[in-house]
Amino acid sequence: MRVEVTGRLWRLGDNVDTDILFPGRFMTLGGASKDAALQGLAAVDPELAAMAPGDAIVAGRNFGCGSSREYAALALRDLGLRLIVARSFARIFYRNAINVGLPVVTLDDVDDLPDHGPLTVRLDTGTIVDRAHRRVFRTQPMPDFLIDIISKGGLMAHLHATLAAEQGRRPAEAVTR
């Protein structure tokens, strides 16, 4: 699976937690939206409120630590971010990102990534290509079954297919995001 980052790469530090990515006060049925992420991030650095579709986040260690709130991954996806690259991820966030169809890549030398796209990422081979600077970064290939979930747009769509195949149980109708 191929991911294209066309916009800016926003740099964040270590231990970006879920209370920053999605402040608790927004966590009700009516409160979930990408604005929550923008407000949370802006509380750390007002400039981060300018994140836009096509952009990516480049972070340090333990990105997404803390709560299991999937809203954190959902809000970043809904912002139109193409990719999160981090030295390491907190495990629940990592799974949540995949489950909502937001590509995540673990990379040690994040500091060498450029500040702007284009970047082409292949999850199956674990390569990140920075054509402008003629550089290729190598990381762990992602297992096929996870790529399958991301490429279907997330676990909901994947689940419709699995259920249909597994039990012959008919899903009601196409998934709404």
Binding site: S68, A73, I92, N96, N99, V100, L155, L159
Partner: peptide, 19 residues
Amino acid sequence: ATGIGSTEMVSVFARGRIW
């Protein structure tokens, strides 16, 4: 015992299994 996200729980609710 471990924490999971909402969509993953949807999958558990439907199938009773998790990876």
